[in-house]
Amino acid sequence: MFEFLTSPAVYQFIRGPLVWLSFMIFIGGNLYKFLSMLSLAKKDKVVFPYISLKYSLRSILHWIIPFASTNWRKRPGMTVITFFFHTCLLVTPVFLIAHNALIKESWNFRLWTIPETIADVMTVVVILCALIFLMRRLVVPEVKFVTFGTDYLILSLAVLPFITGFLAYHQLLFAYELMGTLHILAGELMLIAIPFTRLNHMVYFWFTRAYTGSEFGAVRHTRDY
Protein backbone atom coordinates (compact mmCIF):
# COMPACT_ATOMS: atom_id res chain seq x y z
CA MET A 1 0.00 0.00 0.00
CA PHE A 2 2.67 2.48 1.06
CA GLU A 3 4.92 1.35 -1.76
CA PHE A 4 2.00 1.86 -4.09
CA LEU A 5 1.43 5.38 -2.78
CA THR A 6 5.09 6.33 -3.08
CA SER A 7 5.59 4.82 -6.54
CA PRO A 8 6.39 7.72 -8.88
CA ALA A 9 3.37 7.30 -11.18
CA VAL A 10 0.82 7.23 -8.37
CA TYR A 11 2.61 10.00 -6.54
CA GLN A 12 2.52 12.18 -9.63
CA PHE A 13 -1.12 11.38 -10.24
CA ILE A 14 -2.22 12.24 -6.70
CA ARG A 15 -0.27 15.47 -6.69
CA GLY A 16 -1.17 16.47 -10.22
CA PRO A 17 -4.28 15.49 -12.18
CA LEU A 18 -6.22 14.28 -9.14
CA VAL A 19 -5.97 17.71 -7.55
CA TRP A 20 -7.59 19.29 -10.59
CA LEU A 21 -10.10 16.51 -10.87
CA SER A 22 -11.21 16.87 -7.27
CA PHE A 23 -11.54 20.63 -7.57
CA MET A 24 -13.60 20.12 -10.72
CA ILE A 25 -15.83 17.57 -8.99
CA PHE A 26 -16.13 19.87 -5.98
CA ILE A 27 -17.23 22.83 -8.06
CA GLY A 28 -19.26 20.89 -10.61
CA GLY A 29 -20.92 18.75 -7.93
CA ASN A 30 -21.90 21.72 -5.85
CA LEU A 31 -23.24 23.48 -8.92
CA TYR A 32 -25.26 20.42 -9.83
CA LYS A 33 -26.61 20.14 -6.28
CA PHE A 34 -27.48 23.81 -6.28
CA LEU A 35 -29.32 23.62 -9.59
CA SER A 36 -31.23 20.49 -8.65
CA MET A 37 -32.23 22.13 -5.37
CA LEU A 38 -33.40 25.17 -7.33
CA SER A 39 -35.52 23.15 -9.73
CA LEU A 40 -37.08 21.20 -6.86
CA ALA A 41 -37.74 24.43 -4.98
CA LYS A 42 -39.68 25.71 -7.99
CA LYS A 43 -41.94 22.67 -7.76
CA ASP A 44 -42.56 23.38 -4.09
CA LYS A 45 -45.51 25.75 -4.07
CA VAL A 46 -44.47 27.92 -1.15
CA VAL A 47 -40.71 28.41 -1.50
CA PHE A 48 -40.42 31.19 -4.05
CA PRO A 49 -43.56 33.11 -3.05
CA TYR A 50 -42.20 33.31 0.51
CA ILE A 51 -38.59 34.26 -0.19
CA SER A 52 -37.61 37.74 0.98
CA LEU A 53 -34.08 39.11 0.71
CA LYS A 54 -34.38 41.19 3.86
CA TYR A 55 -35.51 38.35 6.10
CA SER A 56 -33.09 35.88 4.47
CA LEU A 57 -30.19 38.12 5.37
CA ARG A 58 -31.56 38.80 8.85
CA SER A 59 -31.74 35.08 9.50
CA ILE A 60 -28.32 34.24 8.04
CA LEU A 61 -26.64 37.04 9.97
CA HIS A 62 -28.12 35.98 13.27
CA TRP A 63 -26.82 32.47 12.79
CA ILE A 64 -23.32 33.09 11.42
CA ILE A 65 -22.46 35.46 14.27
CA PRO A 66 -21.63 33.67 17.52
CA PHE A 67 -24.23 34.23 20.27
CA ALA A 68 -26.50 36.25 17.99
CA SER A 69 -29.31 33.70 18.16
CA THR A 70 -31.14 32.42 21.23
CA ASN A 71 -29.95 28.86 20.80
CA TRP A 72 -26.32 29.93 20.36
CA ARG A 73 -26.68 31.75 23.68
CA LYS A 74 -28.33 28.79 25.37
CA ARG A 75 -25.52 26.50 24.27
CA PRO A 76 -22.38 28.56 24.81
CA GLY A 77 -20.04 25.56 24.86
CA MET A 78 -21.29 24.19 21.58
CA THR A 79 -21.29 27.66 20.05
CA VAL A 80 -17.66 28.31 20.88
CA ILE A 81 -16.64 24.88 19.65
CA THR A 82 -18.54 24.99 16.39
CA PHE A 83 -17.38 28.52 15.53
CA PHE A 84 -13.76 27.67 16.31
CA PHE A 85 -14.09 24.47 14.32
CA HIS A 86 -15.61 26.08 11.24
CA THR A 87 -13.48 29.22 11.24
CA CYS A 88 -10.23 27.30 11.51
CA LEU A 89 -11.48 24.68 9.05
CA LEU A 90 -12.22 27.29 6.40
CA VAL A 91 -9.40 29.75 7.07
CA THR A 92 -6.40 27.46 7.57
CA PRO A 93 -6.32 25.72 4.18
CA VAL A 94 -7.04 28.86 2.17
CA PHE A 95 -4.47 31.12 3.81
CA LEU A 96 -1.76 28.57 4.55
CA ILE A 97 1.70 29.63 3.35
CA ALA A 98 2.45 26.20 1.89
CA HIS A 99 -0.82 26.14 -0.10
CA ASN A 100 -0.29 29.65 -1.36
CA ALA A 101 3.19 28.76 -2.54
CA LEU A 102 1.56 26.12 -4.72
CA ILE A 103 -1.03 28.58 -6.01
CA LYS A 104 1.79 30.97 -6.86
CA GLU A 105 3.60 28.22 -8.74
CA SER A 106 0.52 27.50 -10.85
CA TRP A 107 -1.11 30.88 -11.31
CA ASN A 108 1.48 33.36 -10.13
CA PHE A 109 -0.60 35.06 -7.47
CA ARG A 110 -0.92 34.58 -3.76
CA LEU A 111 -3.46 35.44 -1.14
CA TRP A 112 -2.78 36.99 2.21
CA THR A 113 -1.20 34.29 4.38
CA ILE A 114 -1.13 33.43 8.08
CA PRO A 115 2.10 32.69 10.00
CA GLU A 116 2.96 29.03 10.20
CA THR A 117 2.76 28.72 13.99
CA ILE A 118 -0.74 30.22 14.01
CA ALA A 119 -1.78 27.86 11.24
CA ASP A 120 -0.37 25.04 13.29
CA VAL A 121 -2.44 26.05 16.31
CA MET A 122 -5.56 26.38 14.16
CA THR A 123 -4.99 22.89 12.81
CA VAL A 124 -4.86 21.54 16.34
CA VAL A 125 -8.06 23.45 17.15
CA VAL A 126 -9.87 21.74 14.28
CA ILE A 127 -8.68 18.35 15.47
CA LEU A 128 -9.65 18.99 19.09
CA CYS A 129 -13.10 20.30 18.15
CA ALA A 130 -13.63 17.25 15.96
CA LEU A 131 -12.73 15.08 18.94
CA ILE A 132 -15.37 16.87 20.99
CA PHE A 133 -17.92 16.31 18.20
CA LEU A 134 -16.96 12.65 18.28
CA MET A 135 -17.41 12.49 22.05
CA ARG A 136 -20.83 14.10 21.76
CA ARG A 137 -21.88 11.45 19.27
CA LEU A 138 -20.76 8.70 21.61
CA VAL A 139 -22.02 10.16 24.87
CA VAL A 140 -24.83 12.73 24.59
CA PRO A 141 -28.11 10.75 24.41
CA GLU A 142 -29.99 12.98 21.96
CA VAL A 143 -27.00 13.04 19.61
CA LYS A 144 -26.27 9.34 19.97
CA PHE A 145 -29.88 8.54 19.10
CA VAL A 146 -29.56 10.12 15.65
CA THR A 147 -25.99 9.07 14.87
CA PHE A 148 -25.28 6.75 11.96
CA GLY A 149 -22.13 5.47 10.29
CA THR A 150 -22.29 8.34 7.83
CA ASP A 151 -21.92 10.82 10.68
CA TYR A 152 -18.58 9.33 11.64
CA LEU A 153 -17.65 9.19 7.98
CA ILE A 154 -18.26 12.87 7.28
CA LEU A 155 -16.54 13.88 10.49
CA SER A 156 -13.49 11.82 9.46
CA LEU A 157 -13.52 13.23 5.95
CA ALA A 158 -13.53 16.75 7.39
CA VAL A 159 -10.75 16.19 9.90
CA LEU A 160 -8.39 13.82 8.07
CA PRO A 161 -6.73 16.54 5.96
CA PHE A 162 -5.91 18.34 9.20
CA ILE A 163 -4.54 15.29 11.02
CA THR A 164 -2.39 14.28 8.04
CA GLY A 165 -1.33 17.88 7.44
CA PHE A 166 -0.26 18.23 11.07
CA LEU A 167 1.70 14.97 10.97
CA ALA A 168 3.37 15.89 7.69
CA TYR A 169 4.34 19.37 8.88
CA HIS A 170 5.93 17.97 12.03
CA GLN A 171 7.34 15.00 10.13
CA LEU A 172 5.72 12.48 12.45
CA LEU A 173 4.58 8.90 11.96
CA PHE A 174 5.65 8.39 8.33
CA ALA A 175 8.29 9.90 6.09
CA TYR A 176 7.39 13.40 4.92
CA GLU A 177 6.90 12.26 1.32
CA LEU A 178 4.34 9.61 2.21
CA MET A 179 2.57 11.73 4.80
CA GLY A 180 2.37 14.59 2.35
CA THR A 181 0.80 12.33 -0.25
CA LEU A 182 -1.70 11.02 2.30
CA HIS A 183 -2.50 14.61 3.23
CA ILE A 184 -3.19 15.56 -0.37
CA LEU A 185 -5.29 12.45 -0.83
CA ALA A 186 -7.32 13.28 2.29
CA GLY A 187 -7.91 16.81 1.03
CA GLU A 188 -9.02 15.49 -2.34
CA LEU A 189 -11.39 13.02 -0.73
CA MET A 190 -12.90 15.80 1.33
CA LEU A 191 -13.43 18.04 -1.69
CA ILE A 192 -15.00 15.23 -3.70
CA ALA A 193 -17.21 14.23 -0.76
CA ILE A 194 -18.60 17.68 -0.01
CA PRO A 195 -21.22 17.82 -2.78
CA PHE A 196 -22.39 14.25 -2.29
CA THR A 197 -22.57 13.91 1.49
CA ARG A 198 -24.19 15.96 4.20
CA LEU A 199 -21.02 18.06 4.14
CA ASN A 200 -22.94 19.93 1.45
CA HIS A 201 -24.57 21.80 4.35
CA MET A 202 -21.83 24.26 3.42
CA VAL A 203 -23.94 25.15 0.36
CA TYR A 204 -27.42 24.34 1.64
CA PHE A 205 -27.02 26.29 4.89
CA TRP A 206 -27.57 29.60 3.13
CA PHE A 207 -30.73 28.42 1.43
CA THR A 208 -32.42 26.59 4.29
CA ARG A 209 -31.80 29.66 6.43
CA ALA A 210 -33.07 31.97 3.69
CA TYR A 211 -36.28 30.00 3.38
CA THR A 212 -36.98 29.66 7.09
CA GLY A 213 -35.94 33.25 7.74
CA SER A 214 -38.38 34.41 5.07
CA GLU A 215 -41.21 32.21 6.26
CA PHE A 216 -40.81 33.44 9.83
CA GLY A 217 -40.15 37.08 8.95
CA ALA A 218 -42.24 37.88 5.89
CA VAL A 219 -45.15 35.49 6.40
CA ARG A 220 -45.48 34.88 10.14
CA HIS A 221 -44.04 38.21 11.26
CA THR A 222 -41.85 36.69 13.92
CA ARG A 223 -38.21 35.80 14.56
CA ASP A 224 -36.32 32.63 13.77
CA TYR A 225 -33.25 33.28 15.88
Partner: peptide, 19 residues
Amino acid sequence: AGRLRTFVETCIHCGLCSD
Protein backbone atom coordinates in the same frame (compact mmCIF):
# COMPACT_ATOMS: atom_id res chain seq x y z
CA ALA B 1 -40.22 18.73 -3.52
CA GLY B 2 -37.56 21.22 -2.53
CA ARG B 3 -38.13 21.54 1.17
CA LEU B 4 -38.33 17.83 1.90
CA ARG B 5 -35.16 16.94 -0.01
CA THR B 6 -33.13 19.89 1.19
CA PHE B 7 -34.11 19.56 4.84
CA VAL B 8 -33.44 15.82 4.93
CA GLU B 9 -30.12 16.15 3.09
CA THR B 10 -28.91 19.07 5.19
CA CYS B 11 -29.61 17.89 8.74
CA ILE B 12 -26.23 17.22 10.31
CA HIS B 13 -27.71 15.12 13.16
CA CYS B 14 -26.38 17.47 15.84
CA GLY B 15 -29.35 17.35 18.22
CA LEU B 16 -29.32 21.11 18.83
CA CYS B 17 -33.07 21.22 18.18
CA SER B 18 -33.87 18.98 21.17
CA ASP B 19 -34.46 21.60 23.85
